[in-house]
Design a binder for these strands. Structure first.
Lengths: 230, 230
DNA sequence: CGCGAACTTGATGAAGATCAACGACAGTGG
DNA sequence: CCACTGTCGTTGATCTTCATCAAGTTCGCG
């Protein structure tokens, strides 16, 4: 682990684009950053464990972080994949004192850690900090509800179609999406085993979706949308 | 629908026990209540629809409300069952302007509706309102994450065991739990079809769980806990 | 007592997890 | 430049779990 007090300009730019930081006044932003450290972590690095006492919440500046929980048998289930700009464990600012899942870098990643106590104190003082947190938590809650709904009402090909559509720039006709990470990560994010994701892609081939490596080519976006109606 | 400007003392007491209201100063509480109306709704009453423009968020004072989303084919999936004290659609205070799911009373229910704009304005002024909302959203987010984890890691009997344990006063030995609502509602909350819930209960009978009506008798709570290890 | 809704039980099918084998590919070291 | 190796992804076979459909049965209530 490599902790820098001095941010790279790239990391600094990413930090400022974060939903959390971008809505703060410059004064508040400075105070938040004083309670923050940035780390460069190798791939597969465990950031914290389920049940550990929490001291920080986090924001991803680069790379991807996997949040997951374990079965008693040791089977893992992903709860969320966090990419650049995403915040995690922020629900611990108010309420619980323990992490509720494991967090591990998927690939090498850059992560900002914010001291919980300091930011909590700041949120109680500064309206804009509280407002930024409220917006973030609301957004996060909606995303998580979408996840539950997706799990409960969609089949594997539908979940994949959903994902592609959400990451597709175009409304109709042909399009292409580049996966930002390995397929096994995507499988976890969608609540599927890697094999199931693979089979879902094969099924979508019938309606003009071709996959080579991380590139997904879609012949007709409207056809994908129709998959959700089946 | 029956809207009262005057609260029954029973409803008033419940309102004050709400996680949202109970953390407010009396001044803030009064201002929040000025932006609130309370309704008594019959069973199966649709409170709002998925996609409707949102004007209020809600707090259940009595009875149960079901939040669910529809498939394109019309199949329903429950996202959450809200009981007395639970708040819903509060994530719309910041961010989206549209409801993201349907809300329907399960049985006859009493529900408080808070004007979104008014409470948003209040949250920007009053620290204690913002703090109460932050606590509520954090808690709600954790619960929803638990739901995802439960869906992804546990089988039907394990989900039921989990539910019983969470509602069981005792740590070991025999215990009893009374379901606060119909089994079909519990099935939805656990992401199961009613038949699957029924079968899960039969399977738990092997380890000393007996069900009669809404009463669940547990022979040995520790045995239930062991189900989660299987 | 009788009616309807809720619940249970059985039979069947679909979806996806798991296990195993194989192919593609990148990086490594000769 | 080429085998060697390990990771990732695909494909096939099988098994588990659960949804669905179809009867029954029980329960609550007028």
């Amino acid at each position: 682990m490599n902790t820098n007090l001095k941010l790279s300009s790239r990391d600094h730019a990413m930090l400022m684009k974060t939903p959390f930081m971008s809505n703060l006044s410059s004064a508040s932003a400075a105070r938040v950053m004083a309670a923050m450290t940035v780390s460069s972590l190798p791939a597969r690095h465990l950031i914290f464990r389920d049940g550990e006492t929490a001291s920080s919440f986090f924001c991803v500046l680069g790379g991807y972080v996997r949040l997951y929980r374990l079965n008693r048998e040791g089977r893992e289930a992903d709860l969320r994949i966090c990419g650049p700009g995403d915040t995690f464990a922020e629900c611990l600012l108010f309420g619980d004192r323990r992490y509720r899942y494991h967090a591990q870098t998927a690939e090498s990643a850059t992560v900002a850690a914010f001291d919980l106590k300091a930011v909590r104190a700041l949120a109680e003082q500064e309206r804009d900090v509280a407002a930024a947190l409220l917006t973030m938590l609301s957004q996060h809650l909606l995303t998580t509800l979408d996840c539950v709904a997706n799990d409960r009402l969609h089949t594997a090909p539908q979940r994949v179609a959903n994902y592609i559509l959400a990451h597709c720039p175009v409304d109709g006709g042909p399009a292409a999406v580049r996966l930002p990470f390995q397929k096994s990560l995507l499988a976890g994010q969608l609540g599927l085993a890697p094999e199931a994701l693979s089979r879902a892609f094969s099924k979508l081939r019938e309606i003009g979706v071709t996959v080579r490596g991380r590139i997904i080519q879609v012949g007709d976006v409207q056809a994908l949308r129709d998959v959700l109606r089946t």
